[in-house]
Nucleic acid binder design. Sequence first.
DNA 1: ATAATATAGTTGTATGTACAAACATCTTTT
DNA 2: AAAAGATGTTTGTACATACAACTATATTAT
Lengths: 142, 142
Amino acid sequence: MLNKCDSKYCSCLYYSANALSRIMTRIADESFANTGLSSSYAFLLMIVNERPGIQPKEISIQMLLTPSTVTRLIEKLEFKGYLERKPAGRNTEVFPKKRSLELNEALKESWRNLFKKYSEILGEAQGVQLTSDIYGAIQLLE
Amino acid sequence: MLNKCDSKYCSCLYYSANALSRIMTRIADESFANTGLSSSYAFLLMIVNERPGIQPKEISIQMLLTPSTVTRLIEKLEFKGYLERKPAGRNTEVFPKKRSLELNEALKESWRNLFKKYSEILGEAQGVQLTSDIYGAIQLLE
DNA sequence: ATAATATAGTTGTATGTACAAACATCTTTT
DNA sequence: AAAAGATGTTTGTACATACAACTATATTAT
């Protein structure tokens, strides 16, 4: 039986980028589990808590997600009572509600744990380096 | 307005790994578009073409996907007439049909194009290096 | 000022992926 | 050889994400 390391597809960036993403999402969801939110929702809340009134467009740029995805995330968080949308001309402004602000410390703590978790495995310097290499590639590719 | 580079979340591996994965999937899907398949299906076919009779478990290890995801991919490819499943005790053996074998050259060609596409943007050496760095991280993390 | 175009946001729909549970077969232990 | 456990596969269900089409507002050009 082939070991995964023998697969010639491992030398493909598409391949390894996807695999890393799935693994990191799993780790992140574990880290944020105690907040009751999965990782994307957690990040979105932190972003809105940081800049109340931020617009979906900006969120989508910061999160590198499409506008429609952001609408969907906000919708659900609004329904659950974390956020509120206020129409402003052709824009929408997104505000945190009490429930979101109260969660902010827990969110940041989980986020620090996430960093700690992968840093312990990869080594802190290596983790930071990899993150920055990937981010460099993203800026070239998009 | 914040530029995406200013987001402090960019320093998070979860964040950049997911972003890279979405971008690479988009590029890969473009590359494989002429085969009529999206990238995961394309890779799965190449794997089965290479090793007729391979079992879903092995595919899931090679592709770093869960078994249930692999079942779903195979199901659809079987329905479309590319593959065939033969039960073998508790295992299943997956065989390519004519349609899949005929597509193999086009698949490989698309895959080479994918490599070329991101190599042109990142630089070939840098792309290879990044892929290998990511793969190293994957092996530590899982 | 009106028409043309651009931008922000949302909605319908589809896809890829996973988890947990169920099932079927194989292996080990006693 | 029967019971217990392990392994491979599939199924039900849910979720994150995207694309294309649409609406509504803003901006620009004539």
